[in-house]
Amino acid sequence: MIDFDAIQVGDAIPVYTSAPITRTQLVRYAGASGDFNPLHHDETFVRMIGMENVIAHGMFIMGIAGEAITSWIDNKYLKKFSVHFLSMTEPVNLNDFENTKRRATITVSGKVIKKYEENGEKRIRCEIIAQDALGSRKLSGFFIAAPP
């Protein structure tokens, strides 16, 4: 596990890449989180508001970003996690997988931008970004952690 002294400003967080997000995974996330906004599973609702496809929950993408962070640093050291959602994510179409997988594959990256002390605790601040395989940014934000 990483420790505070070994971390340097500018260090990159290990890059985390999701599997292509499917509609089934959106349904699973809806049930797991309780977010049943029809925007994420009901194509008839989506068409009614002028869109073509259901989209992933922003919080699903943030959940994936959380997985990226906690693959690097234990979640008990996390102090703050904050994101702006930047664009929508359409799931892969199973009948056109090759052409749609890139829009549904999320890569999370980030780096350490500050090391400091607060309330007698050593902390790091890291910026984080999630984007799809076409380069479209899904969210950006930061987290603060207090590793030992």
């Binding site: 997985e67 906690t70 979640n75 996390l78």
Partner: peptide, 17 residues
């Protein structure tokens, strides 16, 4: 996990709607 707290809002008090 870090984003689980979303459950405390969506699974109580009638949730999103």
């Amino acid at each position: 996990p870090p984003t689980f707290a979303t459950n405390f809002v969506f699974w109580t008090g009638g949730g999103l709607l």
